[in-house]
């Protein structure tokens, strides 16, 4: 085996190792595989009074199963409410009276949108809006309500 052949084998080992590493990082460690299989989606909109800590690309869940992602978050200038657009997998058709609420996974986890299907026999189409929404729970508001309640009951006694 010549010197040149040895050098080429050495470089081959380097390239092979890095390809294996890239493959592992792409498929097993990161979400590259999920992005590659771009499944067809349709868009739904929803207005919220308060989105809390919701972020773009946050999951949209139906009974805990991820069926879509938050595509964009903005403010509707006509009514000053938060406008959230979601991309939902085409495989999942949702009834017209589906409601959406912003929930938190675990005590300190990330926020996501939970969908609750209703009983309507018509389905939401592309660019439709989910009418019934429930905002994120804001801890300060909760504490404020609790304080009001406590002082109220204190006054009555």
């Amino acid at each position: 085996m010549g010197k040149q052949a040895k050098i080429e084998i050495g470089v081959g080992i380097l390239v092979l190792f890095s390809i294996i590493s890239l493959f592992v990082i792409a498929m097993k460690v990161s979400n590259f595989a999920d992005m590659a299989q771009d499944r067809p989606t349709y868009t739904l909109k929803a207005h919220f009074d308060n989105i809390g800590g919701l972020k773009v690309r946050a999951p949209v869940k139906l009974s805990g199963v991820v069926i879509g992602r938050v595509a964009s978050i903005g403010v509707d200038k006509s009514n000053y409410r938060a406008l959230v657009t979601m991309k939902i997998d085409k495989a999942y058709q949702l009834p017209l009276d589906t409601s959406a609420s912003i929930l938190t996974s675990g005590l300190l986890g990330d926020q996501y949108i939970g969908l609750e299907p209703g009983g309507d026999d018509q389905y939401l189409a592309d660019e439709d809006e989910i009418e019934m929404t429930q905002s994120a729970l804001v801890l300060e508001n909760l504490i404020g309500q609790l304080m009001v309640k406590l002082t109220d009951s204190g006054d009555k006694q």
Binding site: V29, S30, M35
Partner: peptide, 15 residues
Amino acid sequence: FWSQMHAHVDWREDV
């Protein structure tokens, strides 16, 4: 171990 990693590591953002 793997599923948590898979859920939190973003291809574009991190890799």
